[in-house]
Simulated scan of single mutants.
Amino acid sequence: MNRNILVRALLVVLVLFLGTSGWIIDREVGRTFSDDPLVWEPEIAAFERVDRESPPPRDAILFVGSSSIRFWDDLAKDMAPMNVIRRGFGGAKLSDLIHFTDRIILPYSPRAIVIHAGGNELTDAPGNRRRTPEKAFADFQSLIALIREELPDVPIYYLALRPSSLPDARDRLLQRVREDCEAQPDLHYLDAGAGLALADGSPNPRLIRWDFIHLNREGYEAWAPPVRERLLGDLGPGPLHPAP
């Protein structure tokens, strides 16, 4: 093939790729900043379709929350021998989890629930209607109360937000959540973020993906061990079902 033609073809492919990627990123950012939980309906419906086709095991540990759970591709391996169900989606907020509780939390009859959400509410990016830490905490309380109506005795763990570029808002929310966990039976605060931060408390860029937001595989390898150690110590390995 003529070299000039090849170069032009590669440039066209690159432009198409960048244009498509930009559209996808813009769409995902728009959904993350939306106040309407129904923007996540396709993801929730996909979970339900998977559940019908391949029912997950009972008595597993349910991990539910935002994209940090969604991108945890090796969660089952990282938590072995405990069986887990992974239900993370998009830029989920605590208010989104409230809306979809009856579809992605209650149906699984989990032996424990791990929640990781609350960071997207605090983001001060342009276009986001930022919540205060107090509003995010109120949503956390509402979510716990909703779960407790149907699952009064199931241990619930709040997996603390990772080190952030907005430490003040993050710390205010986490302080309220920690105090609430200390005051309630079977509600636990799980902070596994120490290995993800630099000496000054800021996120370690070596553990972050190209998007400067989410953990890369090395980041998950640092995050997973304290989570596994805590859950295994508290709950034991559990039933020996195959992980979904």
Rank of each mutant, 00 (worst) to 15 (best):
D186C: 13
E41S: 14
P110R: 12
E150S: 14
L11G: 12
V177D: 06
S202F: 06
D36Y: 04
K77A: 14
D234Q: 11
Q184V: 07
N216V: 06
G236N: 09
F100G: 13
F47P: 09
A46H: 07
R170H: 04
S68N: 12
L235Q: 05
W72C: 06
V39E: 02
G19K: 10
E149L: 11
K135S: 14
R8Y: 00
P185S: 07
I113A: 09
E41T: 13
A145Q: 08
F212Y: 00
E179S: 15
F140I: 07
M82G: 05
D191Q: 08
G118Y: 01
N83I: 14
E179Q: 15
E28W: 02
L207I: 03
D59R: 15
A45G: 02
V84T: 15
Q184R: 15
I147K: 05
A112Y: 04
H214L: 04
P163I: 00
F100R: 02
R87I: 07
Y108H: 14
V29W: 09
I115M: 11
I25L: 13
P239N: 08
Y158V: 00
V13F: 06
Q175E: 14
H99Y: 12
V64G: 09
I144L: 10
A136Y: 08
T20F: 14
L173Y: 08
P239K: 13
I69C: 08
A243G: 04
Q175D: 15
I113G: 04
S68C: 11
P126R: 07
D26Q: 14
A60W: 05
G127T: 14
V154E: 00
D153R: 11
P155Q: 13
I105A: 10
P81C: 01
H214M: 00
K135M: 12
G219T: 06
R58Y: 09
L75R: 06
P152C: 08
A117H: 00
R217I: 08
R217W: 04
L94F: 04
H116Q: 15
E179W: 04
F89R: 03
D36W: 05
R8T: 00
A92F: 01
L18E: 05
